[in-house]
């Protein structure tokens, strides 16, 4: 259906306006102008910021430069989460553009994974796809693919090629019609105020009675506080790709259309702004 493909495209081409500024403590030879960039929501920070790095290296001495990392209002940003998830989770009610601070020293080893090269991002991305396929099809689809097919998924993401990526990814989105959906839905629920990085459990798209599970059903089971009681004010926003889907949205359709390229449905539960 045509409008479903429009949804896939809108998800793929989502952008976040971002202003990068150099951390004040960095030693520079001359003043560094801020750098502005539209960041792809579905990609990874360290994959799309080559230009940011180049821009700030121009004003720095080589010996003052260690591994680059990013911070938003005191929070180190995890490059292994998709960019859209970082924004929705930490900054969705901020004034645009999103203001990120760039660091070249004091790498926070306790909070962040190192990212010495793009092959580390590729390995992380592919392991997510494999984990998702293990949940959806007991790994059958991803194992039937060839090495070059895996490469096509990664190159599609890296080079922002929607058609190249989806030519392969649609195989990962198929399921037997008689089952009405995947075996389990690959999802992760993120919350700001938690020691747990995210909630991830087994959840089927169809109930034992054969009815389709909705986003509301998932939350009722995983995060009941996210659903307002009758007559109560909404305490949380449930955000996927920067929007709030209705709770009656079928989970199987969400998994097929609003997952990230890593094949997971990343769901952010954030407190409703009070002002």
């Amino acid at each position: 259906m045509a409008d479903d493909k429009d949804v896939l495209r809108d998800v793929w081409y989502g952008r976040i306006p971002t202003c990068f500024t150099l951390n004040q403590d960095e030693v520079t030879e001359r003043e560094a102008e801020p750098y502005y960039l539209l960041l792809p929501r579905v990609s990874y920070l360290t994959l799309v910021t080559d230009k940011v790095k180049k821009h700030f290296l121009k004003v720095m001495k080589a010996e003052d430069v260690e591994e680059m990392w990013f911070e938003y209002e005191g929070t180190p940003l995890k490059w292994h989460y998709p960019i859209g998830v970082l924004f929705d989770l930490h900054a969705s009610n901020t004034i645009l553009p999103w203001s990120i601070t760039v660091h070249f020293k004091n790498f926070p080893d306790r909070d962040l994974l190192h990212c010495p090269s793009n092959s580390v991002i590729e390995a992380h991305f592919m392991s997510s796809i494999k984990e998702a396929d293990a949940l959806k099809h007991k790994s059958q689809v991803v194992n039937d693919m060839q090495k070059k097919d895996h490469k096509q998924l990664w190159m599609g993401l890296q080079n922002d090629k929607f058609d190249q990526f989806w030519a392969m990814n649609r195989k990962l989105m198929e399921y037997p019609t008689e089952e009405g959906g995947f075996r389990y839905i690959p999802f992760r629920i993120y919350q700001t105020m938690s020691d747990r990085p995210f909630i991830q459990k087994l959840f089927r798209p169809v109930s034992p009675e054969g009815s389709a599970h909705t986003l509301g059903d998932l939350l009722k089971e995983m995060y009941p506080a996210a659903i307002p009681n009758e007559g109560e004010q909404k305490r949380y926003q449930v955000v996927i790709h920067g929007i709030e889907p209705l709770l009656e949205t079928p989970l199987q359709w969400l998994s097929e259309h609003l997952s990230h390229p890593d094949n997971f449905l990343h769901i952010c539960v954030i407190p409703t702004p009070t002002d």
């Binding site: 409008d3 429009d6 949804v7 809108d10 998800v11 989502g14 790709h241 929007i243 709030e244 889907p245 209705l246 009656e248 949205t249 079928p250 359709w253 259309h257 609003l258």
Partner: peptide
Amino acid sequence: VWKRHISEQLK
């Protein structure tokens, strides 16, 4: 309704 809501919100 839920699908139209998603399309509109993305736009």
